[in-house]
């Protein structure tokens, strides 16, 4: 048994001329909450479809819970709960009957315990009262909850949740986050995809960022945060002297802006081998530069995410 719940090597999917997923090397450790991030159309769902055997890879290999994909999926999938590209149910059946139907398709879904497990899963997502209602009458948020309940019918080693907070109100989003946290505390590996970093940043331990089918970054959240270069913000009435002093210590001045009090805000990148900030400030003062403000900033995950994937409303392609 390796310590990876999901591992892909060079995983590729081509639709016609378009590379939906391009040589993807994912590594999601067991026990992690692994966020698969990327804008709409970046290949997250296609990746998930390949991992679950719904679509065949054009190239590369994948392993899920130490089973080859797709050959070993018959053994792996019973240990996997999934929500893929939104919930889907029979509108003419009740919520509880829909869960019973999908449970009957699961080789591990024992008929004797079925109604009990269905009731438990519904309770867990707060749908007990709607259990007897036809899904036709469910709101999008209720269907999303029912989809989560389906993933929770049996204890799983791995949960794959594709955009689990779609259609949920802020309250529902918080509930999903706490659900993910409690599942992870129980030892379940959770692979959660999202186009909204803020939705998963608080719960995930690891993340991968995809853009146009490619992996842009991957690692623990701390590693990803450290990957961004730090910046120095200096407010001074003597910009020329200050800039000369910063350059002397290997910093690169990238911005210069007039501030309200007649001084200037200088922005400079801080290389890893640059002197400590307190030393820089002391040197600036010693050189007669007036220091009205000094700050070292690392980019937020959000800024990092935008830097990796670009900004704006356009879907990736």
């Amino acid at each position: 048994m390796t310590d990876l719940a999901v591992e892909t090597r060079g995983l590729t999917k081509r639709f016609g001329h378009q590379l939906a997923v391009d040589s993807l090397d994912l590594a999601a450790p067991r026990g992690s909450v692994f966020a698969l991030l990327g804008p709409n159309g970046s290949g997250k769902t296609t990746t998930i479809r390949m991992l679950l055997g719904l679509a065949a890879a054009t190239g590369g290999t994948a392993r899920v819970l130490d089973h080859e994909v797709p050959g070993g999926l018959g053994a792996a999938l019973p240990q996997v709960g999934a929500l893929i590209e939104g919930p889907a149910f029979y509108p003419f059946l009740t919520g509880a009957d829909n869960l019973a139907r999908l449970d009957a398709a699961d080789p591990r879904g024992r008929a004797r315990t079925r109604s009990h497990r269905v009731a438990e899963a519904l309770e867990r997502v707060g749908l007990t009262k709607a259990a007897g209602k036809k899904v036709r009458a469910y709101s999008l948020g209720m269907k999303q909850r029912l989809g989560l309940a389906n993933a929770l019918l049996l204890p799983r080693e791995l949960l794959v949740l594709d955009e689990p907070t779609n259609g949920l109100d802020p309250q529902g989003t918080r509930e999903v986050r706490s659900l993910i946290r409690s599942l992870a505390d129980g030892g379940t590996t959770v692979l959660v995809s999202s186009h909204l970093l803020a939705e998963v940043e608080q719960v995930s331990t690891h993340a991968a960022v995809m853009h146009q089918g490619r992996l842009k970054a991957q690692g623990t959240l701390a590693e990803l945060r450290a990957a961004g270069t730090a910046q120095v913000l200096l407010r001074t009435p003597d910009p020329e002297a200050a800039a000369a002093e910063l350059v002397r210590f290997g910093l690169v001045v990238t911005g210069r802006q007039q501030a309200a009090d007649g001084s200037t805000d200088l922005t400079a990148t801080l290389p890893e081998d640059a002197p400590a900030p307190e030393y820089l400030v002391a040197e600036l003062v010693a050189a007669g530069v007036g220091v009205r403000g000094f700050e070292v900033r690392r980019p937020s995950m959000e800024e990092l995410f935008v830097a990796l994937t670009g900004e704006g409303f356009d879907v990736a392609r």
Partner: peptide, 18 residues
């Protein structure tokens, strides 16, 4: 069309069995 096929298959129902 309903989308339930993907959930039956990852249950996993097995394609031949289904």
């Amino acid at each position: 069309g309903l989308g339930t096929l993907r959930y039956l298959l990852v249950a996993p129902a097995g394609r031949l069995r289904l």
